[in-house]
Every structure is written in structure tokens, then in C-alpha cells.
């Protein structure tokens, strides 16, 4: 990407500075190249949706895919439907968030433990993989028997689904510190804790945050899927989806699905933003600058 010449925006050059400062002519979000393609794509998507439901489907079969305006009208603008949808959304968001928090603490701990010795990694990592490979849905009845069919089980499903990416990204991140930097710490007799805090964890930060980003979307999926099976207690989005499905209320069904989707996107974006805020200034946008 070439920067157009600018007269402002960039930080003042420091004395003797030879390179490294990039100028920021426009806030990036305002560049047409930034917002135009996604907007066009969105319009195409909505257009295709209209086309299928209004043209392809006969009126009798329109319940298979109600047009977007009907979904908005019925699910989001009608307070009778909106109120339960929003409170369910809030509940599912709560379950996803709590599950993500538990998975984060657990995943970080397991990742750190595995990074401490090769034999620990060898003995623990296979079980992390098993956890990832086990079809959670198949385990659902068992989880229900053990932990009852309420909120606790929803949480457990959420944690089980979100855990693996956190473990693997933490482990990968902790192991990716430069060997020379390890040498430097060895020369000055740094202990395990110092090494972890001053070198490995910060090195792992971008990887961990990317893992959390993936885990956050999975936590939303986990919270919604958990709802399908564990219906005791207040209704989450998944409970409503199942209900609307049974009643063939497809506008509400699609509305609920869109809300669940938006929740996942919000979680994804939040961690992306957090990652940029924390690690944005650590590495140049094109990696290392050439020496001057």
C-alpha cells in the first residue's frame, strides 16, 4: 500500500531519525478501500436473500426462508417477539462470557504447565486433543446425567468447546520465544518465573489473544448448542431457536439465528480490537524495517 503524501497526522520526526515512522494521512476506517468492498458484499448478500425468498420460493414455501424485511419486522420490531429474544440473548451472552472466562483461566494454566517441561507436554497434550476430538454432542446425555440439565451443564459444554484453541495457542506462543533471548536470560541466571513473565508470556501475547478470539466465537456456539439440550432454567437463544423451529415460526427463528451470529461477531471483533490495542505497536506492519 502506498501512502499518499500528507502534511499532517504523522508524529514529528525525532532528531536524527532516519526511518521507521509511517505517516497516517486519513483514519484508516474512512478510506473507501476499507468500507466499500464489505458494503457491496453485504448488499449482494441481502439481495440474494431477497431473490431466493421472493422469486425462487413460492409463497406457500416462503417459510423456508422468509425475506429479510419480514424477519426484521417480526423478530426485531415487534415487541412481543423482541423482548424474549433480547433477554435470551443476554442470558446466552452471559453463559458464553462465563464459559470463556473459565476456559481462559484453565487454558492458560494448562498451556503454561505444558510449556514447563517436555514430559509434561507429552503426557498432557494428547488429552487436550482428545477433548477437541470428542463429539461434544454425543457426550451431552452423560454431561446431563452428571451435572443435571440446567445452567451448569450449559457452562460445561461451553468450556469444553472453547478450551482447546486457548491451550494450543498458549503453548505455541510460549514456545516461540527467540533462543537468543532465552540465552540472554540464562546468562543472567533468570529463573522459570522470571523467564515466563519477562519473556515467554509477552512473546505469546499475540498468539494467546488470537486463540481467545477463536475461543470467543466457539463459546457463543457452545452456549447456544448447550441450550438445545439443557433447557432447565431461563431460556437462552438456543432454547428459543428450538421452540421457534417446533412452532414453524421461521421469522423469529431466523431473527434468533441472526442475533446469535451477531453475538459471535461481537466477541470476535472485541478480541481482535484488544489484540491490536495491546500488541499493535510491537511489530512493524511489514515486520522488521530494513536497516538504514
Amino acid at each position: 500500500m502506498s501512502d499518499p503524501p500528507s502534511t499532517d497526522g504523522g508524529p514529528p520526526a525525532l532528531p536524527g531519525s532516519t526511518s521507521g515512522w509511517r505517516r497516517r494521512p486519513l483514519p484508516r476506517t474512512m478510506l473507501p478501500s476499507r468500507w466499500l468492498p464489505p458494503t457491496v458484499m453485504f448488499l449482494l448478500f441481502v439481495g440474494a436473500w431477497f431473490f431466493v425468498s421472493e422469486v425462487v420460493l413460492s409463497e406457500r414455501r416462503q417459510f423456508l426462508l422468509p425475506p429479510p424485511d419480514a424477519v426484521v419486522q417480526v423478530a426485531f420490531l415487534d415487541p412481543v417477539n423482541r423482548a424474549p429474544l433480547l433477554s435470551a440473548l443476554l442470558l446466552s451472552a452471559g453463559v458464553a462470557l462465563a464459559g470463556l472466562a473459565i476456559a481462559s483461566v484453565l487454558g492458560l494454566l494448562v498451556g503454561i504447565v505444558m510449556s514447563q517441561a517436555r514430559w509434561l507436554e507429552r503426557s498432557l497434550y494428547p488429552y487436550a486433543v482428545v477433548l477437541q476430538c470428542v463429539p461434544t454432542l454425543a457426550m451431552v446425555p452423560v454431561i446431563g446425567f452428571w451435572f443435571d440439565f440446567g445452567l451448569a451443564s450449559r457452562l460445561i459444554v461451553t468450556v469444553a468447546i472453547a478450551l482447546f484453541p486457548i491451550i494450543s495457542s498458549t503453548l505455541f506462543g510460549l514456545q516461540s520465544a527467540d533462543p537468543r533471548q532465552h540465552d540472554l536470560l540464562t546468562l543472567h541466571r533468570a529463573g522459570r518465573l522470571t523467564r515466563l513473565v519477562k519473556l515467554q508470556l509477552p512473546t505469546a501475547m499475540p498468539a494467546i489473544l488470537t486463540g481467545l478470539q477463536v475461543a470467543a466465537t466457539l463459546a457463543v456456539v457452545g452456549a447456544v448448542v448447550g441450550d438445545f439440550f439443557f433447557k432447565q432454567g431461563d431460556a437462552g437463544i438456543g432454547v428459543l431457536i428450538d421452540l421457534y423451529r417446533a412452532r414453524l415460526q421461521s421469522e423469529q427463528l431466523f431473527g434468533a439465528a441472526i442475533l446469535a451470529c451477531l453475538l459471535g461477531i461481537a466477541a470476535f471483533s472485541a478480541f481482535g480490537l484488544l489484540n491490536r490495542m495491546i500488541t499493535g505497536g510491537w511489530y512493524g506492519s511489514t515486520g522488521y524495517d530494513r536497516p538504514t
Binding site: P15, G16, G20, Y288, D289, P291
Partner: peptide
């Protein structure tokens, strides 16, 4: 000779710096 760059992160420095 790096006075003035104390608060800068390495990514913003040249190789020599």
C-alpha cells in the same frame, strides 16, 4: 547516541539504532 528515543519501541527503529 540514542537520546530522544527512550520511549520508542524497537519496531520504529532502524537496524543500526
Amino acid at each position: 547516541g540514542l537520546e530522544g528515543f527512550e520511549k520508542v519501541r524497537p519496531a520504529a527503529l532502524s537496524g543500526g539504532m
